[in-house]
Design a protein around this nucleic acid. Structure first.
Lengths: 136, 136
DNA sequence: CTCTTTGCAAAACATTTGCATGCCT
DNA sequence: AGGCATGCAAATGTTTTGCAAAGAG
C-alpha cells in the first residue's frame, strides 16, 4: 500500500482528511522502519508544534485497524512500533537499534501441516532481530 | 531445568534463598504457561499478604537473567514462564487467553541459508498464537 | 554482623479517556 | 450545520527506583 492508497482508504471509510494524518502516514512510509509513538511525534513537532500524544495514538490505532500500519514490540520496550503494511503476507528482519526492516518471503507456517487438533491458530509472529550495516 | 536446580543455581550465584523466591519459581513451574506479573502476585497473596510488585518484578528480572525464566509479550503485556527442561532450541504455540504453551520442534531459521551480508542476526522470535481447547 | 531482600511510597513511562473546542465536508 | 478530530488535563496500568527496615548466611 502506498501513501495515496492509504489516504484514499481513509476517505472511503468515512474518516476525514487532515494534514496531521497525511504527515503521519508519509513519515512512516518514508522511513521504512518500525518507529515508536515518540519518534513519530518528534518528527511532526516542527510542522505541528502543538500536536499531542493523543492524536498520535488515536491515529496509530485507527491506521492499524485499517491495516495501513503494522504493529510490533521489541527490545522489551513497552512500546509499539509501526511501519507500513504490505499486501503480501511477509515477515521481517528488524534492526534492534534503528528499527529498520528487511522483508522476508519465507513464512514458517507454510511448513506446518494445518491446525493441531487441540489448538486453534489465530495468528503468529516470526521476526528476526539483529543489526543493520549502519548500526553494527 | 527443574525447580530444585533453579534454587541451586540461585544459591551458587550468591543469591539468598527466601520463601518468596521459592514460591514464585514453584508457581510458575507448576503452571506451565506464560503468566503476567499480576497473575503471579495474585497467586502469592494468600501466602504472603504483604508481598509487593517490586519484589515480583525484581525477582522476575533476576530469574530471567539467570535463564530460569523465559519472557515474552502478548496481549500488550509482558509475560513470564518457567524455562523448561528442554535443552533443545524450540518455539511455542501460546494460548492468548490462559498463556498455556505447546512445544514446536520446527525452527524457521533452519530454512535460511546463513546470514544476509548486510544484516547480522542476533536473535529471533517465532510464536504461534491462538486458543487452546479449554479456552476456545 | 554484613550484605541482600523486601515493603512502602513515589516516580517514570507509555498509553487511554472525558470533555470542550475546532475543523473538515 | 453536524459530526469527526484534536488538545488539554487527568487517569490508567505497568514497571522502576530510593530509602529504611527486616531477614538470610
Amino acid at each position: 500500500m502506498n501513501v495515496d492508497q492509504a489516504l484514499e482508504l481513509l476517505k472511503d471509510q468515512g474518516y476525514k482528511y487532515t494534514g496531521k494524518r497525511e504527515e503521519m502516514i508519509r513519515v512512516i512510509a518514508k522511513e521504512k522502519r518500525y518507529m515508536s509513538a515518540k519518534e513519530i511525534l518528534d518528527y511532526m513537532k516542527p510542522d505541528y508544534p502543538n500536536i499531542s500524544f493523543d492524536t498520535i495514538y488515536r491515529n496509530l490505532s485507527l491506521f492499524t485497524e485499517l491495516h495501513i500500519l503494522e504493529e510490533t514490540e521489541f527490545n522489551n520496550e513497552r512500546k509499539y512500533r509501526f511501519s507500513c503494511a504490505h499486501k503480501d503476507h511477509h515477515h521481517h528482519l528488524i534492526c534492534l537499534r534503528c528499527g529498520k526492516t528487511k522483508h522476508l518471503k519465507l513464512c514458517p507456517l507454510d511448513g506446518l501441516l494445518g491446525n493441531p487438533d487441540d489448538f486453534t491458530i489465530t495468528d503468529h509472529k516470526f521476526e528476526i532481530y539483529g543489526y543493520c550495516q549502519q548500526c553494527e
